[in-house]
Simulated scan of single mutants.
Amino acid sequence: MARLLAVAVVMGLAVISLRGRIPSPRDVLSALISADHRWILLAALLQFASIGAFALQQRCLLDRLGVQVRRGHADAIVLASTALSISVPAGPAVATAFTIRKYQHAGATREVAAATVIVSGLASIGGLALLYVGGGGAVIARDPAAFLNWQPLIVVVGLAALTTAAVLVGRWRIRQPSPGGAEERGTTGCRARRYLRAVLNSARDGWRAGTELRVHDWTVALAYTTVKWLADLACLIATARALNQSVGVATLAGLYLSVQIVRQVPLTPGGVGVVETALVAGLIAAGASGIGAAAAVLVYRLLSCWLIIPVGGIAALTLRRVHKSA
């Protein structure tokens, strides 16, 4: 109920801010037809590179943890899990469970599979934080007084510090003796309690496996996820250029990073409806035309979200056939 109320509030505010500026579908279609399709092709390639960087990160982490996964197999798992994450309720949790299960089928232990997911999640936060810090540093270098209005940068620095502390604590904990398993096996209780204990134990074991990674491994994972975010941002910039929208790169980057904060709140699967509304409103506020903004967001979301769902579904079916034949 609270989630529905939050979605209603967001949509209500968007309708108020966009009143009189929402174009008709016919106008948007005309803008798409007249768009520069070379920029759209570039946007598609950039989105492909974004997904590819994420898949390479996963293969690299698995390789460092002693598991070899073929490139095509890793790409299929990433596509299928991404499709789940953006298309079903509680998508990230469902996608995480799916990814761990598929990595186990590929030969990883549950601990290694969980470690890959945990490290990937931390690297994803770190990559996004780097974009915030880099963008904030550029703004401050150009206008030092802007630091007073750059609260998101302070928040991200705090989150980065907490993440670093968590990694250091995890590396320390790995050296501590773990409690005996006999007591845990003898524990009885309701099904929910046993399930929670199993999840916590799995997370603990995964974290222990992940802390065996070297600093170089963490750096490589962070580099890949930064490329993933940058390619996705460049995809949005390319779609804006395709529709001939005179919005600066810095403005688009700020809008993109702001929307990423919105996406972290799972109001709807994949942020559907909320992200589109926020992007259109932001582009219009930045000086884009209503028609151009709507068309650019339509292309960007088509490439970065909607097309991934059927492609990921095909990848999931392919993985299922491979596992049945194995």
Rank of each mutant, 00 (worst) to 15 (best):
A6C: 08
V7P: 03
A8I: 03
V9G: 06
V9C: 06
L18Y: 03
G20P: 12
D27I: 00
L29S: 12
S30W: 00
D36R: 13
A43V: 08
A44T: 11
A53K: 07
F54T: 05
A55S: 15
L62Q: 03
D63K: 09
Q68W: 07
V69G: 04
R70M: 04
A74H: 04
A76E: 11
I77A: 07
P89F: 05
A97G: 13
T109K: 06
L130M: 14
V133W: 04
V133T: 12
G135R: 05
G136W: 02
I140R: 04
D143L: 06
F147Y: 09
N149G: 08
N149W: 01
V169L: 15
I174H: 06
G181H: 10
E183H: 06
R197T: 13
L200S: 11
A203P: 00
A209N: 09
T211L: 01
L213H: 05
R214S: 15
W218Y: 14
D232H: 09
A238K: 03
Q245S: 09
T251R: 08
V259A: 11
V259N: 06
G270I: 05
E276P: 12
A278I: 07
V280Y: 03
A285Y: 05
G292Q: 12
L302S: 15
L303P: 12
C305T: 14
